[in-house]
Design a protein around this nucleic acid. Structure first.
Length: 255
RNA sequence: GCCGGAGUGGUGUAGCGGUCUGCACGUUGCUCUGAAAAAGCAAAGGUCCCAGUUCGACUCUGGGCUCCGGCA
């Protein structure tokens, strides 16, 4: 086992990206063992407590003693966002670097990885769900006209038909009373990105195998428990875009 | 074996005797400013088979095949 020697306060980061079931978690652990690293998960679903089997969260045994960060840091009852993730991830990565160890960002959610390695500067405006609900009732055209009045520059670049983005833009302006600053990126880490490629058929097989294993492991129990602990069915459905959760809800699945 | 119901993109469905068969999910490509397994844009992809009626059938009729339910 050849351990990498890094100076304290170095700036290195390894990021692993790739499709579902391609073996990112395994690779992350392997690399961590080899290069004296710790893993930082970047998965928008695995941040939630209680969603283990369904999200394919790594188990204690699979971690093989390697510390994993940013798993189980949020309640599924509340919504978690990229901005929250970004802050915590950067914090965790810096801490690992300070110890002279190698942080390994293990992908899952592309946007989350991007937020960290590209250092997208996200406006400091928390989502206002009541406001969003109100704006939701308007048409794209109405929202676009409103945005045009508030911030003509942003209106020029925005996708006129993307309601979600239009709403977010208006939300930022209403809260800050200012126009939206142009997109900035603040790259803070010296990152090596590792992409995993795998044959499609093989991926399918791996996913199927994983699905069957998870059903056995108590997938259905997990969903029941989530609901018992107070996560509404509605919220569960929101979170349940994952095929395996959909299976639990509908009894149908396509592979 | 009999009776009934149904066969429409990869999956689930909608509709109609006559412009391009619509929608959802999935797929592929592109775009991304606190929802990212998201959202938006674009593209590929279909009427089970054979006859008949008709100017014209995905639609109506008959037969075949297959599936589902009920009865034997």
């Amino acid at each position: 086992m050849s351990n990498l020697i890094l100076p304290k306060n170095h700036n290195k980061l390894v990021a692993i990206v790739g499709p579902n079931a391609s073996g990112k978690s395994d690779l992350a652990v392997k690399l961590a063992k080899k290069f004296n690293g710790e893993v930082v998960s970047a998965d928008s679903r695995q941040v939630y407590k209680g969603m283990d089997i369904g999200t394919g969260k790594i188990t204690k045994e699979e971690m093989q003693g390697i510390p994993h960060h940013l798993l189980d840091i949020a309640s599924p009852k509340r919504k978690f966002s990229v901005a929250q993730f970004q802050k915590k991830a950067i914090e965790a990565i810096k801490k690992i670097q300070k110890k002279g160890k190698l942080p390994i960002l293990c992908g899952g959610t592309g946007f989350y990885v991007q937020a960290v390695i590209d250092g997208i500067v996200i406006p400091e405006v928390k989502p206002d769900w009541a406001l969003r609900k109100k704006l939701e009732k308007k048409t794209c055209e109405q929202l676009y006209q409103q945005l045009k009045k508030l911030d003509p520059r942003r209106a020029k670049t925005i996708d006129k038909k993307n309601k979600r983005r239009l709403i977010r833009a208006i939300e930022i302006i209403l809260k800050t009373k200012k126009r939206i600053p142009s997109l900035k990126k603040r790259v803070i880490f010296d990152t090596l990105i590792i992409g995993i490629k795998r044959d499609k058929e093989e991926l399918k097989k791996r996913i199927k195998k994983r699905l069957l294993r998870r059903l056995k492991e108590g997938m259905i129990e997990e969903v029941k428990n989530l609901h018992k602990s107070g996560v509404s069915w509605k919220r569960l459905e929101e979170l349940a875009r994952i095929p395996i959760y959909r299976f639990v809800f509908t009894g149908k699945i396509r592979l």
